[in-house]
Design a binder for these strands. Structure first.
Length: 121
DNA sequence: CCGTTGACGTCGG
DNA sequence: ACCGACGCCAACG
């Protein structure tokens, strides 16, 4: 009958794990779900999902950009209520509040999921 | 099966 | 730094 929706379930289970006061990106969720290039599809899932207990507002766009939401003002408010600063369409200090962290050996700075490269070999 | 739809990401200008 | 163009892909009809 309907589609598998395996990807959708994986995506939602991942988003549920984003801690309060932290954010992740559509692309990072796609990568964690095993489809690194499916960021756009993740956005579509966020848009239509109705499951409760999922912090949809903690999923933002690459580079700390705020990304979409049914009601953008509410997304900003929810993030602000968790101690994040949102201005200019960005979450300030994105690198310090992103999730999950990826330890880069030898770097004192925290980092997030590495961006994709267009051409690979 | 094929076309459309986007709460996206990357690169070039 | 800010767009615009283009690529990508799961879900749905």
């Amino acid at each position: 009958l309907g589609a598998d929706r395996t990807f959708e379930r994986r995506v939602l289970s991942i988003v549920k794990r984003v801690p309060v006061g932290r954010v992740t990106t559509y692309g990072a969720v796609a990568t964690l779900a095993g489809r690194p290039r499916a960021a756009r599809a993740v956005g579509n899932i966020m848009k239509h999902a109705r499951e409760g207990g999922v912090p949809y507002h903690r999923v933002i766009a690459a580079g700390g950009r705020i990304g979409g939401y049914s009601n953008p003002a509410i997304k900003r408010a929810l993030l602000a209520a968790e101690g994040l600063t949102v201005s200019g369409g960005r979450v300030r200090g994105f690198r310090d509040v992103c999730w999950p962290e990826t330890n880069r050996r030898g770097s004192a700075r925290r980092d997030c999921v590495a961006p994709l490269r267009r051409d690979r070999r």
